[in-house]
Design a protein around this nucleic acid. Structure first.
Length: 273
DNA sequence: CCTTGAACCTGCGGGC
DNA sequence: TGCCCGCAGGTTCAAG
């Protein structure tokens, strides 16, 4: 589920109900996700006021009134649900937040590749989880020059390189394929060859794709945060991802699926060179 | 430093 | 119906 647009959507959805509220109760229903919860996490959060909810890379961050930041990653299968009925928690509802106005939010993650931890807001950029990260794909700091400089000398395929969060942050497996399609670049092209006009095409393609997905997510946000909420709102906009064997819009080739670095890549052999 | 492959974990759909 | 396999939006770590 969660690539950058989905995480951004989750942040905006949570901000609507949690900003300015206090955690009245935090229930950890197991002791870990991908990594252990820090000792005393529930107690540390209880009573704290949420000052700001924002995104860094694919992390949801909640700045608290004691100078700490709650760091949440949704992994592959995580999602946040704002509970509006009296349903019981399910098997994979691992953390349940209740605020001072009675709002209940559940963190659900079947595969448990997500994580939740706490760190001081000061120096967050040098935190182990963040210090290696490159520029956010949507930031002004992500430019064609910056991208080609980061890719210089790299022989790995551009599709694989785009998933390396040290080079650029926020491009996941779906939008890597979609961005390369929009930019007309073969996913197999050596990363170091993305310079000049190719870099000039790829950077705006990435930004456009991500912004369009955020816009689509924003419009279906209420559905997304329902208990039964499943995503998929941007799937109709995918031009190549998940479309192996279908005709490309160019009508001159079928969309092909290959495996790169153990991840699926989809592309058009005609449109992308 | 770069690159690749495996690992973490559960669920689902397809083929037999 | 049931079983086995491959596959899934991310990240990290070890090894070459």
């Amino acid at each position: 589920m969660p690539e950058l647009p989905e995480v951004e959507t989750v942040c905006r959805g949570l901000a609507g109900v949690l900003n300015g509220r206090r955690f009245a109760r935090v229930e950890l229903r197991r002791k870990d996700l991908r990594i252990p919860f820090p000792r005393g996490l529930a107690a540390a959060l209880t009573g704290r006021r949420i000052e700001l909810i924002y995104r860094r890379a694919k992390y949801v961050l909640m700045a608290l009134d004691d100078g700490n930041v709650l760091i949440i990653h949704l992994g592959m299968s995580g999602h946040m649900a704002i509970i509006k009925d009296d349903s019981s928690p399910g098997l994979h509802d691992h953390v349940i937040f209740t605020t001072d106005d009675g709002t209940v939010v559940r963190f659900n993650d079947p595969r448990r590749f997500g994580l939740m931890t706490l760190a001081p807001a000061s120096g967050l950029d040098s935190h182990k989880l963040f210090r290696h990260l490159g520029p956010d794909a949507l930031s002004d700091g992500f430019t064609p020059d910056v991208l080609s400089a980061a890719l210089k000398g790299r022989k790995a395929a551009i599709k694989t390189a785009l998933l390396d969060q040290r080079l650029v942050v926020g491009v996941g497996n779906i939008y890597a394929s979609e961005s390369l399609y929009r930019a007309g670049i073969s996913p197999k092209r050596p990363a170091g060859s993305i310079t000049g006009r190719r870099a000039a095409a790829l950077v705006p393609a990435i930004k456009q794709i991500l912004n369009e997905a955020i816009a689509a997510g924003g419009s279906s946000l209420r559905d997304h945060v329902q208990p039964s909420g499943e995503l998929g709102y941007f799937q109709n906009a995918w031009r190549v991802y998940g479309r192996e064997g279908e005709s490309c819009a160019c009508k001159r080739a079928l969309i092909k699926r290959i495996v790169q670095a153990a991840r699926s890549t989809f592309y058009c052999t005609r449109c992308q060179t």
